[in-house]
């Protein structure tokens, strides 16, 4: 077991309100890894890096800085579970370091509520914490039921990796973070043509987001994926219900379960699908469970 890691979870809005199954999977899977989640009161929306930022960048920076202050006061790192939150909090930190005058302006506003943003807090997406602070060896030591034979189509999403100047997480064109994590769970990570394509959620258009989702699923299907593995609730929203919309509007059935990374980790740690909330997804994971049970019985027979 690694030294006890204590971090502040920044849950954001989508996960606790819309997809609490993702929060459940994080809480379940961090315990065996010795990660202590120190929940803090007072966080608001990060705020979202698309609409709120489009309205007013200074307001966007101010709200983000207020959130960061809460973690600074507690003296602990933040982990994020959503790529949007990761993007907002890391970019706000970057801009406020790049432009001291702006930082001053933001701090004048924060002073009204007795806060001061210093710029000392570290923000990491949970998968980055797993790679950098926990490590593959410890991660693999908690795997009780390797996901042998499960082919996971990888979807990075945009905001974890780009811009790399700010995110500092992985090569934005040839990333390996999710491949390595998924391999550690015993599953087979699948690269595919549209692995890095945007889910389209931030685009104000009736057709384009669905077309992007379509291409991503066609690309995963072409390489024989059993499911999709991802790390962002906004992408999940595009893809889980998105497949239903595609079947209605474009008359094409994909039926590939969309699984948040910590849910995959939970299955590998031996939790039942319901224990990590997989029963709440629109696209069901029955076929994957059948495949897992089969590969377990083969191992038993050997």
């Amino acid at each position: 077991m690694a030294e006890n890691v204590r971090v502040i979870p920044f849950w954001g809005c989508m996960i606790p309100v819309k997809y609490p199954q993702m929060e459940l999977s994080v809480r379940k899977t961090m315990e065996p890894l010795g990660v202590e989640l120190v929940d803090m009161d007072g966080f608001t929306c990060c705020p979202d890096p698309i609409y709120f930022k489009a309205r007013d960048k200074v307001q966007w920076l101010t709200v983000a800085a207020r959130n960061l202050c809460i973690a600074e006061e507690a003296g602990l790192d933040i982990i994020t579970m959503c790529s949007g939150c990761t993007s907002t909090l890391l970019e706000a930190k970057f801009i406020l370091a790049e432009e001291p005058e702006l930082k001053e302006k933001v701090n004048q506003r924060l002073k009204r509520i007795g806060k001061e943003y210093k710029g000392t807090v570290t923000i990491k997406h949970i998968v980055v914490m797993l790679r950098d602070d926990i490590g593959m060896e410890i991660l693999s030591s908690t795997v009780k039921r390797p996901l042998t034979g499960i082919k996971v189509g990888i979807h990075y999403g945009c905001h974890l990796l780009k811009p790399s100047q700010i995110m500092h997480i992985d090569d934005a064109d040839y990333p390996s973070l999710l491949e390595n994590l998924i391999q550690t769970l015993g599953a087979t990570p699948l690269t595919h043509t549209e692995k890095l394509l945007c889910c389209g959620k931030g685009c104000l258009d009736d057709n384009m987001p669905l077309q992007m989702t379509y291409e991503i699923f066609a690309s995963m299907e072409a390489v024989g994926a059993d499911c999709m593995g991802l790390i962002c609730p906004t992408c999940f929203n595009s893809f889980d219900i998105g497949q239903i919309l595609i079947s209605r509007k474009m008359n094409r059935i994909f039926d590939l379960p969309v699984i948040y990374f910590c849910q995959l980790l939970g299955l590998a740690q031996g939790f039942q699908p319901e224990e990590v909330g997989l029963h709440l997804h629109r696209i069901k994971i029955d076929k994957i469970m059948e495949k897992l049970v089969k590969s377990e019985s083969v191992e038993f027979a050997l």
Binding site: P49, C158, K162, P163, S164, K201, G202, C203, D205
Partner: peptide, 11 residues
């Protein structure tokens, strides 16, 4: 408004 906000151009 049709920008996807994907940051590929920034990259």
């Amino acid at each position: 408004w049709k920008c996807t906000n994907c940051y590929s151009c920034y990259e």
